[in-house]
């Protein structure tokens, strides 16, 4: 057993080494260059306008530092994060269950599929407006809109996963007398994993955008409300700074989800 575990570790290490050498470096350099060009353009454009219309990168960076030094960053991020998580957890739960039922049962699929596409086609501003009417100007409306925006994406992805399960693997399982549990554990769930991961990455990205949008329009707390405050006080540099924080949070969340899935795969390689 030791022998092939060592082989796997060696193989994983060598892959990691390859990934960090050679082809990866130029991509990183290009990214830095692109970032520098964007900053230069931004700086250049900002000289033509007043800071009220377009604050430059230096002013934005100073505002960013002010936010980092205040208590607001942690408290407001926590509020938005809680709303995001509540909405997303609901969406993952409901979306997965509905997706699995739709995937397993053709009758339910025929019944629910149009409804899913109907909800997905609704413009976000419509359900934000409805949420404000139903739940008032508080965090509940934000949780609701994250939930409504994410559920159809989850359902459609899980359904796609079901549609793409390799029937030949199912036949293999039947021939080798896999029990129902084994069939689900060994064939169905691993086949859905990639679709589940992709749905999570999409909804967490969308979730951050929707949660901020909801807070801008309907809440007095959270990251979105800070943007509203900054706009009311004509602090465009603060709008930019909060915007950068939201972008970073969104990007990091997507990377964390992706890394967690990769970690679970990598850990499986050393199970034996």
């Amino acid at each position: 057993m030791k022998n092939f575990t060592t082989n796997r570790i060696w193989s994983a290490k060598s892959k990691k080494k390859l990934a960090w050498s050679g082809q990866q470096k130029p991509v990183k350099l290009e990214s830095i260059l692109l970032f520098a060009v964007i900053l230069l353009c931004w700086q250049g454009l900002s000289t033509f306008y007043t800071p009220l219309v377009l604050p430059g990168p230096v002013l934005t960076f100073k505002s960013l530092m002010t936010i980092f030094q205040s208590d607001l960053l942690f408290s407001e991020t926590l509020i938005s994060f809680k709303r995001l998580m509540l909405g997303l957890m609901g969406a993952v739960l409901v979306g997965s269950v509905v997706g699995i039922i739709i995937g397993l049962n053709q009758r339910v699929r025929r019944l629910l599929e149009p409804l899913v596409y109907f909800v997905q086609s609704m413009p976000p501003i419509l359900y934000i407006t409805l949420a404000m009417i139903w739940f008032g100007l508080n965090g509940q409306a934000t949780i609701f809109i994250v939930f409504v925006a994410s559920v159809p994406i989850m359902v459609v992805n899980i359904k796609e996963g079901f549609d793409n399960i390799d029937i030949k693997l199912i036949q293999m399982g039947r021939v080798f007398k896999f029990s129902k549990t084994k069939m689900i554990r060994e064939i169905i769930l691993p086949s859905l994993k990639a679709y589940f991961k992709s749905a999570l990455i999409i909804i967490i990205g969308l979730g951050w955008k929707v949660v901020v949008m909801g807070e801008v329009l309907s809440a007095s707390t959270g990251l979105g409300s800070r943007i509203t405050d900054a706009r009311m006080n004509l602090q465009t540099d603060m709008v930019f700074a909060w915007g950068i924080i939201i972008i970073l949070l969104c990007y990091t969340s997507q990377k964390v989800i992706s890394a967690l899935f990769n970690l679970s795969t990598a850990r499986k390689q050393y199970d034996l």
Binding site: L169, M172, V175, F176, P190, K193, Q269
Partner: peptide, 19 residues
């Protein structure tokens, strides 16, 4: 019971040789 070697290998892509 019946065992089967298919035309294609039909191995589980997420399981290693031993598994």
């Amino acid at each position: 019971a019946i065992s089967y070697v298919f035309q294609e290998d039909r191995l589980l892509p997420w399981r290693n040789v031993y598994e």
